[in-house]
Design a protein around this nucleic acid. Structure first.
Length: 214
DNA sequence: TAGGCCATCTGGTCCT
DNA sequence: AGGACCAGATGGCCTA
């Protein structure tokens, strides 16, 4: 894979990154440089296992449970805690292999999954286009196109059907939703509003132009 | 202070 | 029976 293709993937994948609750996700991609998220800088919760919940448990139930049941519940809680830790570890691994943001802001869980989804789709699309045309498609590198237009142009392809912006098959309200999400055009540092367009089945941008180029 | 994100607890369900 | 998985509830931390 040459630098042009790699760059195209990065641009396409990071074309939009949710900035959500604060402006800590400064959008930037240094050419063909993947930065591993500094997981150690991620704010860790200063909680002691179960300590802060004992009070709630006691007041909520108000009952003295049989010792056997308490033991079972305790073991189940430990298993569940370890299961969630494994899940979080897997998410950390996923974050580490995704093209990372330059600062140490860590992607949230949902952002990690969405970015991974975008990334896989971009890789797949890039390979498909490279295989078909022998080069990276222009819209990944130079052209300024509305995202919806790019998606519409590829609505027929199997891979594009799974694109977050193009997915018209999903009925998940948590993925598309009906509310506007705030995204950033990282090339222009502009905040754009996206709306789920029910009639067309894709995100419609308030801003009409989306840049894929530097 | 409200809202977002998170860890944890909990009870239900399914599977081995 | 016990473990895995799931979703709802709860409360802490952080930021705007």
């Amino acid at each position: 894979m040459n630098d042009g293709i790699a760059e195209g993937i990065l641009l396409f994948c990071f074309g939009r990154v949710r900035i959500g609750r604060e402006n800590t996700y400064h959008q930037f991609v240094s050419k063909w440089k993947f930065t591993v998220v500094n997981i150690s800088n991620y704010r860790k919760k200063l909680t002691h296992h179960g300590e802060k919940y004992k009070t709630r448990m006691k007041s909520k139930t108000g009952l003295k449970l049989p010792r056997q049941r308490v033991n079972r519940r305790t073991k189940a809680n430990n298993r569940e805690r370890h299961r969630m830790h494994r899940l979080n570890s897997a998410l950390d691994v996923l974050r580490s292999i995704l093209p990372a943001l330059p600062d140490d802001a860590q992607l949230t869980k949902i952002e990690t999954l969405r970015l991974a989804h975008n990334y896989i789709w971009a890789l797949t699309e890039t390979l498909r286009m490279a295989d078909h045309f022998g080069e990276i498609p222009d819209y990944l590198l130079h052209h300024h196109l509305p995202v919806s237009q790019v998606c519409m142009e590829h609505m027929g392809s199997p891979t594009s059907a799974s694109s977050p912006e193009c997915d018209s098959t999903s009925t998940s309200s948590t993925w598309h939703g009906n509310s506007a999400d705030t995204w950033v055009d990282f090339n222009h540092r502009e905040h754009n509003k996206q709306y789920w367009d029910e009639s067309n089945g894709f995100y419609q941008e308030e801003s009409s132009v989306f840049s894929f180029g530097f």
